[in-house]
Simulated assay, not measured.
Amino acid sequence: MLVGVPKEIKNHEYRVGLTPASVHELVARGHHVIVQHNAGAEIGLDDSQYTTAGASIADSAQEVFARADMIVKVKEPQAAECAMLRPGQILYTYLHLAPDPEQTAALVASGAVCIAYETITGPGGGLPLLAPMSEVAGRMSIQAGASHLEKSKGGMGLLLGGVPGVAAGHVVIIGAGVVGTNALQMAVGSGARVTVLDKNVDRLRQLDLVYGNRIATLYSNAHALEEAVLSADLVVGGVLVPGAAAPKLVTHAMVGRMKKGSVVVDVAIDQGGCFETSHPTTHADPTFVVDGVIHYCVANMPGAVARTSTFALNNATIGHAVTLANKGWRRALADDLHLRHGLNVCEGKVTFEAVAQALGYDYVSADSVLG
């Protein structure tokens, strides 16, 4: 199979779909890889490293899309990239379709076979291809929030960890999944006062066993959530319904009653965000203010630490990339239920139920497409 790696074109996105080591894994199995010129140059992966690994270099994205049987990316294809997809071509990348009707329509029209990292499941449960970027984003959320609490960034002028004689800031984390757990780790390390909310009491119990009285755990209901948010200096939203739009847990009215100069970091923004006041931002212009509250809603947070993120992502994605190249998409999906869960759009049909429900498409199961 000929596998293509275009350069990412989303705002301030420097990650790359395959590292030279991943290219080597494919080439060693008899596949061919074509990488767009300078696709990884911004993170120290130059063309010579790719050619040494066995790839050939293409001058343009148009050449990559025109030649490749499978496109491996990081972020969802932009409009210009969707237009270059062709029927039957495999697209293997993050998609986040539920809050994005324009991209979904473009992928349906393309006829491509679109496999989303974020809905591929794992034998032990969870979402193993989403997890590494959730780990990065969770850790970054505290870093970004602490920075924007500084007065020069528009915040209230608060040091999260405080100093002797001055109270630490209060961090509230909504959701105790991968994002929330990694945010919690960083927030505790900073010396902040931390509250984490989740509906899974067993998960809260696990965190309590690890962190003890260094954190407060709350069962997430409307009353507890509102009380926590209104007392917070920094709120991190890390809720996830796999493949579906994120629930709007924090209302505009609640934001209006928060402390002026406080910060919200909506890590769920890829799936539409869990704050009613959120909308996607970029690394070039990461924040906006609603009712005196700073909103950080960058939709590709891990892109800011693109080298770390690229290697972490490739660790998780290369196995399925090799399988798709070895077997072709039909056999690969037929043989692996977990990979089959990643099929979101296939040859003009929406094959992930939560996306179909969110956007009003007829749902066609992956099984029926394969069958």
Rank of each mutant, 00 (worst) to 15 (best):
G169V: 05
E102F: 09
E102N: 12
A146R: 04
A224R: 14
P128L: 09
G319A: 14
H341S: 13
V369I: 15
E347C: 14
Y117D: 06
D291P: 10
E135G: 01
A284H: 12
G122K: 04
I90H: 05
G155R: 00
T93R: 09
Y219W: 11
M70I: 08
G145R: 08
W329C: 06
E118G: 00
N11L: 03
D270R: 06
N213P: 03
S134Q: 02
F288S: 12
T317R: 03
T181H: 08
A66D: 13
L324K: 02
V289H: 05
G273R: 02
V364M: 00
V267M: 00
T308M: 12
I294L: 15
A98Y: 04
E8K: 07
L2I: 15
I57W: 01
G165M: 09
V264Y: 04
E353T: 07
A321N: 03
Y211S: 08
D198M: 10
R203I: 06
Y50K: 08
L209A: 15
L95W: 02
L95M: 10
V196P: 08
N344Q: 14
K75M: 06
Q143K: 11
G44H: 11
Y211G: 09
Q206I: 10
V166I: 15
A53W: 06
G292L: 11
H252L: 14
V172S: 07
C346D: 09
S231E: 15
A21T: 07
G157E: 09
G157T: 09
G177A: 06
V16F: 00
V210Q: 14
L249C: 11
G169Y: 08
P87N: 09
V201N: 01
G4C: 05
G292V: 13
D47G: 02
G177L: 06
T251I: 04
H32F: 07
A55V: 07
H295K: 12
G126M: 00
V27D: 03
T51K: 03
S147W: 03
L230D: 09
V236A: 09
Y92V: 06
G360A: 11
L204K: 10
G17Q: 10
F65Y: 15
T93S: 15
C297V: 13
I71M: 09
C346E: 13
A334Q: 13
L225R: 14
A222E: 15
N182M: 08
V194A: 11
L240E: 08
G292E: 05
A312R: 10
P302K: 07
A332P: 05
G4F: 00
V201D: 00
N38A: 15
V27L: 09
V293W: 07
A66F: 01
A216C: 04
L197S: 12
S60V: 07
